[in-house]
């Protein structure tokens, strides 16, 4: 059986620079997959390729066995792919509730307003529903993005540094939320700099360096992997 999301042999070249180099990644339903790597390793570029924001030079992306490599972003979203952004991309002049409502309506939810409110409460910002998104502190804005992504009724959830801007308690709560989402059968792909969060909640971790996947395995395996330490600290 193939994984929910399969990225096969994806490369991206900008001019002479190789941002992603023959990357293979997969995310399974019911599990949280971590994607880590030093700055400039190509994680966000890879996310952009998966969601159709950035064309890949070569390689394919499949969702539940269907090749979606050539579909535009909004079609991929309708097939069940949702994401958050490293640099926040909320609808800043809409209210927090409307941010999630837009996504819920788009997903064809029969009771979008109720769903939106429920999702906001689930990520822990239900009391902010009436605020304008632009007035939120960074941490809350990240959680609203997570709620908006969930309103798309996704099969795959891609999270780009969701914990940056959260305090320790919020980060712990986010971890619990992501585990429970995976428990409901979602495939979660997580890019995160907070290593303790990654090590705690991920089932498997892939390490990206110079656009290439240099290691994959359980958190413990990856931590001890000499190439990973080298990627972060440089060659001895």
């Amino acid at each position: 059986m193939s994984a929910t999301l399969e990225v096969t042999g994806v490369s991206v070249h900008f001019g002479g620079v190789t941002a992603v180099d023959d990357a293979h990644i997969s995310a399974d339903a019911g599990s949280v997959t971590g994607l880590i790597g030093p700055n400039g390793a190509g994680k966000t570029t890879l996310f952009n390729v998966i969601t159709g924001v950035q064309p890949a030079t070569t390689g394919t992306v499949t969702l539940e066995g269907t090749d979606i490599s050539r579909l535009p972003t909004f079609r991929r979203a309708r097939l069940g792919m949702a994401r958050t952004f490293q640099r926040l991309e909320l609808f800043w002049t809409l209210s927090v509730l409307d941010n999630v409502l837009v996504a819920a309506e788009q997903a064809g939810d029969p009771t979008p307003a109720e769903t939106a409110q429920r999702l906001l409460e689930r990520v822990g910002v239900g009391q902010l529903a009436g605020e304008q998104a632009g007035s939120l502190p960074t941490g809350s804005a990240r959680l609203v993005e997570v709620a908006r992504a969930l309103a798309c009724e996704p099969k795959v959830l891609l999270l780009d540094e969701p914990a940056s801007g959260l305090d320790e308690t919020e980060t712990r709560q986010l971890g619990v939320l992501l585990r429970s989402l995976a428990g409901e059968g979602l495939a979660v792909l997580l890019v995160e700099h907070d290593m303790s969060l990654v090590m705690e909640i991920c089932d498997t971790v892939s390490v990206l360096d110079l656009g290439r996947v240099i290691a994959s395995g359980t958190p413990a395996e990856v931590r001890a992997h000499p190439m990973v330490i080298e990627a972060y600290l440089g060659a001895a």
């Binding site: 030093p38 700055n39 400039g40 110079l210 080298e230 060659a235």
Partner: peptide, 13 residues
């Protein structure tokens, strides 16, 4: 600043 970002170790060397 971050001379080595995104570069192969050999080039960094």
């Amino acid at each position: 600043d971050e001379l080595s970002m995104g570069l192969a170790p050999k080039i960094v060397g």
